[in-house]
Amino acid sequence: MEKKTKAAIIAIVLIVIAWAALAAAKPSKEVMMSKCSPEIQKQIEAEKNSTRKRITVTYNSLGFINYCAFSSSSKNADGASKEVYVGFAGKVYSAKEGPAKFVSQMVNYTYRMLGCGENVFHGAKLTILLTTLTVLIGFILSIFLALGKISKNVIISKLCGAYIFFFRGTPLLIQLFVVYFAIPGVFGFAWKDLFSAPDTEAVYMGAFVAALIAFSLNSAAYCAEIVRAAIQSIDKGQNEAARALGLTYGQTMRKVIIPQSVRRMIPPICNEFIMILKDASLVFAISLMDITTISKNIMTNELSYMVFIPALIIYLIITAFFTFIFNKIEKKLSVYE
């Protein structure tokens, strides 16, 4: 254990040092820009003061690698309309073919999927934000739903049961449509009106809030079944001991039953988290772009299947990270066993 921790710390320090060194040695933006062919240089110079540009320059800086692309509406001397360069460890490489081309694609796709240089309602940032908040809100709501469902009050129990049945029995995509389109339609408002930001910003924010509401309500229904099963798995003797000591129903739940059942909820809640992570792609339907939507767009627009490599890796990293966190929480909650 001791040794393993030490080795892990050393490994992390070495990686950080190597990363920092490579990042420092990365060619600057100016150097990258100056590497393109003379024709393109000339055109960029010529278009400097014009509003209609025939050359589009894309510059991405990701970690210790730079990516620079010049696409032109006309073809250059080689008959290509695009020149791509990657900068790494003080050198700039043309990414026309071979490993450099592969690296350039990976850098550009990853950059776009992570949502770098965009607001938080884009790419991996959107996926992580939406998923985390959904699980948090859904879990809190689900405790009330679960307690309601096992309540002796028939009306409360039936109501909570109906809620769970409805949200588990209908597709999340339609629930999203209802929240995003139908509800504002019926009540006469628009989600973007909730924000006083510039219009495009407000549209994103409004769509995000609508998605968060739909996802949380849906997730609450699924989590409620998890919470209910965990509560009912606690030995009946715990409840009896608490009641024999004079604790009220509420105190018994808060002090005795729920603290013990939380630990049993963690693994299935982690599963639910991973499900939501994947379901987050449904937000494309209200014009938000998550990792899956961006990779699908890249694939259809650029006919590049390579895009799935960074997409899968990003998903696996997110899943691994959160599984690690959930495991840590579970360990922490099991100290008494």
Binding site: Q238, A241, G246, L247, Q251, Y336
Partner: peptide, 24 residues
């Protein structure tokens, strides 16, 4: 009780203190 029914997530001291603090 026959099967003790102690609260497993609380220490011995917390088990004994729980009811006096919360009920009384």
């Amino acid at each position: 009780f026959q099967r003790f029914n102690l609260f497993p997530h609380l220490t011995v001291l917390e088990n004994v203190m729980l009811a006096p603090v919360n009920v009384k």
